[in-house]
Structure formats: structure tokens, C-alpha cells
Design a protein around this nucleic acid. Structure first.
Lengths: 172, 172
DNA sequence: GTTGAAAACAAGCACAC
DNA sequence: GTGTGCTTGTTTTCAAC
């Protein structure tokens, strides 16, 4: 085997185990992390800081429950544009993510141009978002609103890196 | 005015300001939070614990950068089903979120049944996900894969609760 | 790159208001 | 529901390996 480097990124085995532990339980103390990985606390702290500074860990996020906030309704709004100028698309994207209730938005290729995930209080609020924040933009041609029955987190990107091939094909 | 309660949820003004501060900078210490809000540390700690126990704050999440992990390609896969049995849908959902590279998945109403957000290393990996993890399920009729140019976070649910009416109705 | 130890810091708890 | 002081534990820093 070459060394402990993984893939194209400069992440060694310890980095990956650290990331896995971090993702699994973000609230843990540095001491607890270090103990689990069998390394010194200072080493653990250094690696975590390094991963943050390199941008591998983009950040930490507090997740709110929309329903508890009085926003029990979620939807994905598919937005299709007419004219596609670079500035128009950029300004629309800016306006979309600045709209209260918008959780995330994707600029995608294909039939649709944007997918917008929103949480709102009721159907009226949903209509108001579409009419007052989306279709008001002249570049928007059509929208389609899809109610979200359920949203679930996936195992995430890390699962592709840590366990890419269950079939042991020699070494990578 | 009635009191400091907001909307249908039992959240007062301090709770909302606390949540806003938490979301803005999740890494902050309790002391820093308390100082910003002008309250005692114990009060701040109590409120935060209460918000967590009530489920308003669902949790804390470590956000990884897929590109730094060697997964520069993101896509949204739209999945349409043929047969819609309750168990079939549930098992498919389980399988989808367990697929390495899947960041999140939505079960939606309408034309499509699932929207799956994935991060992968290249186009081949994307094809493999669709063929080996999605279309292998007999309930799946068709899929459409849409490349993600860019994903952006919205201002979030809290913005709908904290600043619903910009018109100053009395003092805050 | 890793470690252990000391100093600075923050969190949790019981209690008083 | 809010504030205070103490005790405990944790993060940080630094010299050294």
C-alpha cells in the first residue's frame, strides 16, 4: 500500500475517522473525541482545527425544527425561467435565498432552473411566497409547487469516501 | 398587545432572539451569547436547554464540504414510481437515504415521488448511483438526473417568525 | 506530526431572589 | 422565571519529543 492518503484529497485515515466521529456526534467534547480515537487531546484539537481551516469542515450548523416554529408545511418549488441572462439568474437566486422561509435553493441544469425548499405556516403563506417572491421576477416563466411529505437526511458524502468499495479489490 | 408570545408556538421574544443568535454563530460560548443578549449566563443556559428539550432546536450538525472530500459533482435525482404501496415507498426511502453520497431526500407530492440530493466524484459515479441504488428497485418507474450548478442556504425558517411584519406595531 | 502538563476558560449545579 | 457563586470539567497554549 502507498500510504494513509485517501483519494484526491489530502486526508489520511485519522482525518476520515475524525470526520466520521464528528458527523456522528457533533456535540461531543474534544476530550471525548480524542479518547474514542485513541489520540491525545491536543492532537485531536489540532486535526480538527486543520480540517476547519482547510475547508473540509465548512462549519457547524444549528438545526431548527420548522414545525416547532409554527411552520408545519414544507414544499419544493420548481422554478422555470424564460430569459436566461447571467445577471438575471444571479439576482433571482439572491432574491430566492433572501426570502423568509426558504431553507435552501438549488440552481440546476435541465428543464427546471431552480429548486426551492421552503417551510411555511400554511397553504396561504405558500401561495404568497410563490406570488410575491418568485413569480414577481420577470425572468420567471412558470413554477410548480410540490408538497413535501417527509424530508430525510442521507448518510452523507463521507460514506462515499470512508466505505467506497465493500469488495476488497486489493488496495485501491 | 397581548404579551411576548409569538405565533402558535410558545416562544417569547427572548427565545427568538436567542435562536437567531444561535443560528448566526453556532460555535459561540454560552457566556458570549448571554453577553450579546444582555442576560445572565444561567438564564441563557436555561433557555437554550429548554429550547433543545422542547425540540425547537433539533440538534447541531457538522457540515462537510463535498468537494474537499473529492466529490465535486452534485445532482438532484427525481424519482417517479409505478406502484405505490406503503411498504414499497418506505423501503425505497430507506434504501435511498442509506446510499453513500446521498445528502438528503424528499418524499414529495405530485408528478415525482422522491427528490434525491447527491454528491459524487464524477459522472460515472452518478450513473452507478442511479442504476445500482435507485432503478434496481422494482417500484421505480423512471428517474431524471439534474446537475446542480450551485446550492445556497436560505435565510431559513426563523426569518419567517422573527420578522413577519416589518411594520413596527408598538415597541418590541 | 504528536504529546503531556499548566493556565485560562466555560459549563453545570445548587441555592437565593 | 431570573441572577450569583462555587465546583467541575474542558479547551488552549507551549515547550519538548
Amino acid at each position: 500500500m502507498v500510504d494513509a492518503q485517501a483519494g484526491a484529497s489530502g486526508l489520511d485515515d485519522l482525518d476520515l475517522r475524525l470526520l466520521a466521529a464528528l458527523v456522528r456526534s457533533p456535540g461531543r467534547s474534544n476530550k471525548a473525541l480524542a479518547d474514542e480515537l485513541g489520540i491525545a487531546e491536543s492532537t485531536c484539537a489540532h486535526r480538527v482545527r486543520s480540517l476547519r481551516s482547510r475547508g473540509v469542515v465548512s462549519g457547524v450548523q444549528v438545526v431548527l425544527d420548522p414545525a416547532s416554529l409554527g411552520l408545519p408545511l414544507q414544499a419544493v418549488i420548481r422554478v422555470r425561467l424564460g430569459r436566461h441572462t447571467r445577471e438575471g439568474v444571479g439576482r433571482l437566486f439572491d432574491a430566492i435565498v433572501a426570502t423568509p422561509g426558504v431553507i435552501e435553493a438549488f440552481h440546476v441544469a435541465g428543464e427546471d432552473d431552480f429548486l426551492v425548499h421552503v417551510a411555511v405556516e400554511d397553504a396561504t403563506a405558500l401561495r404568497d411566497i410563490v406570488l410575491q417572491h418568485i413569480t414577481v421576477h420577470e425572468s420567471v416563466r412558470t413554477t410548480e409547487t410540490h408538497l413535501v411529505f417527509q424530508r430525510r437526511e442521507g448518510v452523507g458524502p463521507l460514506a462515499r469516501v470512508t466505505a467506497p468499495s465493500p469488495t476488497a479489490s486489493g488496495r485501491r
